[in-house]
Amino acid sequence: MKEISVQELKDKMDSGEDFQLIDVREDFEYEMSNLGGELIPLSGVLIESGKIDKNKEVVVMCRSGKRSAAAIMQLEQQGFTNLYNLKGGLLAWAEEIDPETQVY
Rank of each mutant, 00 (worst) to 15 (best):
G89I: 08
K51Q: 12
M1R: 14
E3D: 14
D11I: 11
G89A: 09
E57H: 05
G16Y: 14
V24W: 02
M32T: 05
E3W: 00
I4Y: 07
G65S: 09
S33N: 13
S43P: 03
L75Q: 02
G50T: 09
L9W: 04
D23R: 01
Q20D: 13
K66G: 11
S5P: 12
G88Y: 04
V58L: 02
E29K: 00
S49G: 09
N34F: 07
Q78Y: 13
K10V: 03
D23E: 04
F19R: 04
M13H: 07
E29I: 01
V60G: 02
G16P: 11
V58E: 00
V6L: 09
A92H: 12
K12S: 15
K56S: 08
D18V: 11
K2S: 05
D11E: 14
K87E: 04
A69P: 01
P41I: 10
R25L: 03
M61E: 07
F80Q: 04
S33L: 00
S49H: 13
S43H: 06
V58K: 01
I40E: 12
L75F: 10
E17I: 09
K66P: 01
G88T: 00
L83S: 01
G37W: 04
D23M: 00
K66M: 10
K54Q: 15
I47Y: 11
F28H: 15
L42P: 07
L90K: 00
E57Q: 12
E3K: 05
K2L: 09
L83K: 06
K87W: 02
A71H: 01
I22L: 15
Y30Q: 12
K12E: 13
G89N: 03
L39E: 15
A69L: 10
Y104P: 12
D18W: 01
Y104T: 07
L42R: 10
G37R: 09
V58R: 05
E31L: 11
S43L: 06
L83R: 04
G79N: 02
G65T: 08
I72K: 00
I72T: 05
D53M: 02
E8F: 04
G79F: 03
M13T: 06
E38Y: 12
G37A: 13
N85I: 00
L35F: 14
I22Q: 02
S15W: 10
E26G: 00
K2F: 06
M1L: 09
S15N: 10
L35A: 10
E95G: 03
K51L: 07
E95H: 08
L9T: 06
Q78L: 14
S49V: 01
L21A: 14
L91Y: 08
L9P: 10
F28I: 11
M61P: 01
E95K: 09
W93F: 08
K10Y: 08
A69T: 06
Y104A: 08
V60H: 03
K12I: 02
E76F: 01
E100K: 15
K66I: 07
L21G: 05
V59G: 03
G50W: 13
T81G: 01
V103S: 07
S68C: 07
A92Y: 15
N55A: 13
L46P: 03
R67F: 02
L46C: 10
S64N: 05
G44D: 12
L21E: 03
L35V: 15
G37M: 04
Q7M: 12
A92T: 03
S49N: 14
G16K: 13
R63V: 00
